[in-house]
Design a protein around this nucleic acid. Sequence first.
DNA 1: GGGATTGGGTTGCAAAATGCAACTAATCGG
DNA 2: CCGATTAGTTGCATTTTGCAACCCAATCCC
Lengths: 172, 172
Amino acid sequence: MSKANPCHGNCPIARVTALLGDGWSLMIIREAFLGSGKFNEFEKRLGIARNILTNRLRKLVEAGLLERKASETDRRVVEYRLTRSGRALSPVLIALSQWSEQHLSDCSHSVRYVERATGEEIQRIKVLSADGRELDAGELAMLPGPDADPALKARLVAAMEQAGREAAHAAP
Amino acid sequence: MSKANPCHGNCPIARVTALLGDGWSLMIIREAFLGSGKFNEFEKRLGIARNILTNRLRKLVEAGLLERKASETDRRVVEYRLTRSGRALSPVLIALSQWSEQHLSDCSHSVRYVERATGEEIQRIKVLSADGRELDAGELAMLPGPDADPALKARLVAAMEQAGREAAHAAP
DNA sequence: GGGATTGGGTTGCAAAATGCAACTAATCGG
DNA sequence: CCGATTAGTTGCATTTTGCAACCCAATCCC
């Protein structure tokens, strides 16, 4: 896990990296999407060490991605369920998955994401402009929002200026 | 980093987690999107230890996300540039960022993603059905694709059956 | 030309995270 | 009541991270 650094105060990428940036958290979320809920299910299906699993589940519950509920029929078992917030990660998971299939070896065509009701494959995840055109990485810019902290704002402004300078250099 | 586990053979989420599932890789990619290219830039802007940075850059170059090129004007400096494959992570980065802003405290409205040409804010990243409806997590299913390895296929089929059973239980 | 500086590393060592196996404490089923 | 099951916890070995010092080639400065 990375140290807390000055300039990453409220950068959303830094925040999500601090939460999910390890070898297991995303796998746990994936398992939860696939229907796992019990401690044992996560353990066996992922092959994760029990102490690490305990640690991650606690972290995910604290962050509000999972909720922990003792089963009513058997008070030994505990159910971890995705919250609304956890379910909202589906675009992230699918985008990651689609990227892997296209850009890593040996995992293309290994999963299909379909709409449950129709069985039809979903669309590829895209970045869309306000009026619906698909945008490429080069057509995008990150700007500080109204609540960016000073360090983040400085970083993003510097990036803008650098991009401006490079554009001017390419076509003076 | 997680151990290689039997049942995660060619699961794309497992593969991308093995590559980017640590506290720095995504931050490095983000910095690259913001225009960093030199070793020093990554080091200073992220506050990452040099040996770790060396290690990650090498990994990302090997995976084909970055390319390493000695500068022509100064042969001391090295430029790490996003490849097409690395740039293709933009939907992932933006989806993560948007999720953070909506679901983690203290980072809403900290960044705005805009189309460079128009300055207009882009759309929220969505999961879309074949005919363009926005789909919620609950409306999705993961099925094994034609090249799923046996373990992955087994896992996904089991998840399907579990989902089927639960649906039958809810409305018998 | 030559000494200082810069850029991109490597190395050694301390601290933290991870993995494994054995151990608990509740609860259940018979 | 007894053995099995569930969700943890604990202790210890291994691996990964972080920090600081060192290295060496290329460049700067005069």
